[in-house]
């Protein structure tokens, strides 16, 4: 048995916290569905100088509660400070820092690409490879819908850019943890 009275050496103490994880984080934040909550969250980020990569908000199965999904870069900011500050908002109920390996994350993007009769089919084929859908076809442009992880959407963007990307819109990621447990 360890003698608990044994003196500790101060040299053995190590500081914790405020470390940069160096990776991307997906925070799933349950908030009360009340007016102004999103402003409180985004205002907090501006005020504290935290950078959000993407943010999406939506209802949950409980109408009193909404879910905000945030993605942030853990290399440029201390994620523990971010979550602690978020927790201080009275309307924030729960925060989960989702582990990438245990998370299914998806984003939806719409691409409006210029085309002519010849490139139109090329773009359609590309979209098919990405398991996307063509949702609108015009004479001079075509709209593709792609769902997936961020990397997949970015890869598609790279491929269609040379054709002339008129517009692109992305939802930001939503995420849910794998397995039976609630996110």
């Amino acid at each position: 048995m360890v003698d608990t009275n044994e003196l500790l050496s101060l040299d053995d103490l190590h500081a914790a916290g405020s470390v940069r994880s160096g990776r991307k984080h997906v925070l799933s934040v349950l908030v009360e569905n009340k007016p102004g909550v999103l402003t409180r969250v985004s205002g907090l980020f501006t005020r504290r100088g935290f950078n959000i990569d993407t943010l999406s908000v939506g209802p949950t199965d409980d109408e009193r509660i909404s879910r905000i999904t945030l993605t942030l870069d853990g290399a440029s900011q201390p994620i523990d400070q971010v979550t602690k500050q978020l927790h201080k908002l009275i309307n924030v109920l729960k925060i989960k820092d989702l582990q990438p390996s245990e998370t299914v994350a998806r984003e939806l993007a719409l691409f409006k690409v210029s085309c002519d009769p010849q490139t139109r089919s090329e773009i359609r084929e590309l979209a098919e490879v990405f398991r996307g859908k063509i949702v609108d076809i015009g004479k001079k442009s075509i709209i593709a819908e792609i769902t997936g992880e961020r990397s997949k959407i970015e890869a598609f963007e790279k491929l269609v850019r040379p054709y002339g990307l008129v517009e692109m819109i992305r939802t930001g990621e939503v995420a849910i943890s794998r397995g039976r447990e609630e996110t």
């Binding site: 190590h14 500081a15 914790a16 916290g17 405020s18 523990d80 400070q81 602690k84 500050q85 201080k88």
Partner: peptide
């Protein structure tokens, strides 16, 4: 120094200087 930091607000702990015993 090593730091013991006692605070009711978790966000204050290690905000400016990482604590050894929070």
């Amino acid at each position: 120094a090593k730091y013991i930091h006692i605070d009711v607000d978790p966000a204050e702990i290690s905000k400016n200087i990482p604590a050894h015993i929070p």
